[in-house]
């Protein structure tokens, strides 16, 4: 997969320039080989990773070793497992030591069932981390006011959910996403809920700057092929957004003027 675009439609976050608008998560893959294959097929330049305590006795597979060797990829540690702001801040500091980049995906979901982000703890963690110089990318409910508040405390991007994490519900929050996109001055990345490439394309058509997928690739029939399909969908959606989508029909003039006959003048 081509990693270097021609630079004409790059987007910038945290002072780094990216041509790919697809971000990949690295969880839930059957093995390291498939994960690396999927990351390569996706063309992703930002890849999320998680942070765990090292098992003292068990020797798990080193899933990420091959990723480090790929080059050209920004590793973005997430704060999954954190249940509040203090834990997320701690996780971010550790992640920075390991990931080698100031990028951090702040995710705080205290409820283990629906995994919905906690807006208050997320805000607090984002505020602290942004002040420490992190490139903060918060996973957040699709709430336009929270989006403004997160932007105001210095987040580098916004990552609203398309629908509940792992639900495959697509862009259930489309109406709120439109408001977030309209007012945001930082990149908006739809994170969570996407199931198929067509939904990723729809997010880009709507004006999102990028999407992040993980389950939709890892849990598909052929993760590597699906990663490539998402890559194509994201390019198609972005190109459609730039080209300008055809308006809906119905703009024809009416012969009668029941509402406007009180108006004088020619209107020229």
């Amino acid at each position: 997969m081509e990693r270097q675009g021609n630079g004409q439609d790059d987007w910038i976050v945290g002072g780094r320039r990216f041509s790919s608008r697809l971000l990949m998560g690295t969880g839930k893959f059957q093995d390291s080989e498939t994960m690396v294959g999927a990351v390569l097929a996706s063309g992703a330049q930002i890849v999320t990773v998680a942070l765990r305590r090292v098992g003292r006795v068990s020797r798990e597979d080193d899933m990420l070793g091959p990723l480090h060797r790929l080059g050209g990829i920004t590793l973005m540690p997430n704060t999954s497992g954190a249940r509040n702001a203090a834990e997320a801040v701690r996780a971010a500091r550790l992640g920075r030591e390991l990931g080698g980049s100031p990028f951090v995906k702040v995710e705080i979901h205290p409820n283990p069932h629906h995994l919905m982000p906690d807006p208050i703890e997320t805000f607090e963690a984002a505020r602290v981390l942004a002040a420490e110089g992190f490139v903060v990318m918060p996973y957040m409910p699709a709430d336009p006011v929270l989006a403004r508040r997160l932007e105001d405390v210095g987040c580098a991007s916004l990552m609203p959910l398309g629908s509940a994490i792992g639900s495959g519900g697509g862009l259930a929050t489309a109406e709120m996403l439109r408001l977030i996109i309209r007012d945001a001055r930082i990149p908006v990345i739809v994170d969570a809920g996407l199931r198929s490439p067509s939904e990723a394309a729809a997010a880009l058509e709507m004006g999102c700057d990028a999407v992040l997928v993980n389950s939709a690739v890892a849990a598909s029939g052929d993760p590597i092929a699906m990663a490539a399909a998402f890559a194509q969908a994201v390019v198609a959606g972005r190109n459609a957004h730039r080209a300008g989508i055809m308006p809906r029909g119905g703009g024809t003039a009416l012969a009668t003027s029941p509402l406007t006959e009180f108006i004088s003048g020619e209107g020229t």
Partner: peptide
Amino acid sequence: SPAAHPFMEVMAQRAR
């Protein structure tokens, strides 16, 4: 634009 003058009524309905 002048081209929109014939759309007065449509625009009025939309505006309302």
